[in-house]
Amino acid sequence: MTAATLEQLPWFAEHFEWFLAHKPRYASHVAHSATTGDHHRHLLSIVDPDRLRRVLEVMLDEEEFLSPHGLRALAASHREHPFTLHLDGITASVDYEPGESTTAIFGGNSNWRGPVWFPVNYLLIESLHRFGEYLGDDFTVECPTRSGTLMSLHQVADDLTRRLVSIFLDDKDGRRPVFGDAERFQSDPLLHNLVPFHEYFHGDTAKGLGASHQTGWTGLVADLVARRCADGVPCIDASADQAAPAAAATRPSTSSGAPTPSTTTTIPASS
Rank of each mutant, 00 (worst) to 15 (best):
G203L: 10
Y122N: 04
D171R: 00
L160D: 03
K172I: 07
Q155E: 05
T149W: 02
I105H: 15
A182M: 15
F179K: 00
D137W: 00
T145R: 10
K172S: 09
G174N: 07
L194F: 02
H202I: 12
L135S: 02
P144L: 02
S110L: 14
S147R: 04
T149R: 09
F197V: 04
W117M: 06
Y122G: 02
E126A: 12
G174V: 04
T161C: 00
G180N: 07
R184T: 15
L194G: 01
K172W: 12
Q186E: 12
R162M: 08
G174E: 02
R176H: 04
Q155C: 03
T145V: 13
R163I: 05
F106P: 04
T103K: 09
P196G: 11
L169F: 14
L194C: 12
L190M: 13
T103L: 12
L194S: 09
S147N: 08
H202L: 12
T145S: 13
S127G: 09
R175A: 09
Q155L: 03
G114V: 12
E142H: 14
R163W: 07
V195H: 08
M151C: 10
L128C: 03
R184Y: 06
R113P: 00
Y122T: 05
L123V: 00
E133G: 04
R113W: 00
E142K: 13
S166Y: 02
P119W: 09
H192N: 15
D171Y: 06
S127F: 07
T145N: 11
F185A: 03
G174Q: 05
F201K: 10
F197G: 01
H129E: 04
L194D: 04
W112Y: 15
F168Q: 00
L128Q: 06
Q186G: 13
G132M: 07
S147M: 13
S147W: 06
A157I: 01
